[in-house]
Structure formats: structure tokens, C-alpha cells
Amino acid sequence: MTIIDAHVHIGRFMPPFREGSDDFVADLIDSARSVGISRLVVTSLGNRGYTHYPTPQEFRAANDHVLEAMARFPDVLIGFCYVNPRYKEESLGEIDRCIVAGGMKGIKLWISQKASDSVVDPILARAAELGVPVLQHAWYKTTGNYPDESTPADVAAMARRHPTVNIIMAHLTGAGYRGVIDIAPYPNVHVDTSGGDPESTVVEFAVRELGAERVVFGSDAPGRSFGVQLGKVLGAGMEDERRELILHGNVERMLGL
């Protein structure tokens, strides 16, 4: 069975982790393959570390790394373009460079702005024109979110304004039960299972509330383990047809694979 991981990070600063290796991206792919994951949707959030408010120069450099990696592993890696909507023109230009010309398949928004902020609207409008999804980070943290870190309620507000864009809300465990309930009324919002501990029952809850068509497997590797995160989906109680949608069918549909 094909398994596509919809949420993986690469970065020039990430060290190789296989014994004797000098190639982080190759290590990552090998690690994914060890548990049967064959394709990875990758983003880079910065060359020297994850950058909360990247400048155009910084997000271009990060995306360069993804384009290079895609060229090295074209059958495995699917790139998403990281932008900062606070730089409207530069972000729109970067989307054209990476997606229209470069072959990336989606847009990544992280924590440079809340998803509910209208500053994201030009980016979402361009996503609608291109027919590509937007992967939007979200989390409900008891300990407090970053200043411009979205909650699922922010993602719901984004979805309400852009009903034709497929939005993948990242981090099911971080979004939690409240987050699933927040996005349930908006059929253009999916949730990825990436990140957070492999807390049992939350995947079943998401499938029950959203339908399997709106749940996507993701790991958030390398900060997380491919095996542990895949175990959330393989360990959850559901019919095989639903599991296949989560493991590859939904992403294939959204990305036109």
C-alpha cells in the first residue's frame, strides 16, 4: 500500500542521523521507508533553524533547499512553498517561482501571522487560482501559543473566507478535540495527524467528526518519528477503506497525484 506523509521538514541545518551518513535528506527517506512510507511532502522553515518571521531572502533560501532535494529525489519528495504573508508581493512571487515554475504542490504557512488575519488573503486567493492546498500550522497550547501562532479557530476563520481552497490544518493532537470541533463546519479544512504524542482515540474522534475524507496522515519528522506517528493511523480503529484515504487517497486527490 502507498503511504504518503503529508508533513515532513528538511533544512540545511539538520544533521545526518544514520551511522556514517553525510546526507540528512537520504537518512530521512531511508527512515521513512523502514516503516513503509514511500512519499514525503516536505517543507523547509529556514536554513539555519526554524524561522518564525522569515524575510523574503530567508524563505527563498529555504525553498531553494526544497527544490534541490526534489531534484535529487523526484519520485519521493513533494515540495510545499514556505512564505511569509507579511511580505505580500515577495510571497506571491515566490509561489510562482516554486509552484508554477518549480513543481511544488502546495503552500506552507507557519507562525508569522494568524490564519484569521486578512494579511493571508492574497496568498489564499493565489492558492485558489492555482488549485493548490495550504498547509497551515495550528495548536491549542495550555502553556500559551506564540504571539502569531494560529489556533484551530483561526484556521476556521480562514476557511470561512476562502471556501474553495483546500486547507490542511496541521497537528491533530495539538489541535485536540476542541480543534476538530472548530473546523468541522468547514468542509474545505482537513486535519493532518502530525506532531504531538501518539495519544490514543484522537484519530478515531477526528474520523467520526470530520469523516475520513478530511483526515491526512503526517508525521512532523524529523522532530517526530515516522514509526510512532504512523502508528496513530495504523493503530486507530477503523475500516481499511477509511485508513487508505488517510494514508494516501486524500493527499493524492488534493495534490492531483
Binding site: 501518539p198 495519544e199 490514543s200 514509526g227 506517528q229 504512523l230 502508528g231 496513530k232 486507530a236
Partner: peptide, 9 residues
């Protein structure tokens, strides 16, 4: 936690 996660580790 899902047991499967520990097994796939």
C-alpha cells in the same frame, strides 16, 4: 498512547 506507535518504533 497507541500501542502500534511503540511497535513501529
Amino acid at each position: 498512547f497507541y500501542i502500534k506507535s511503540a511497535l513501529l518504533k
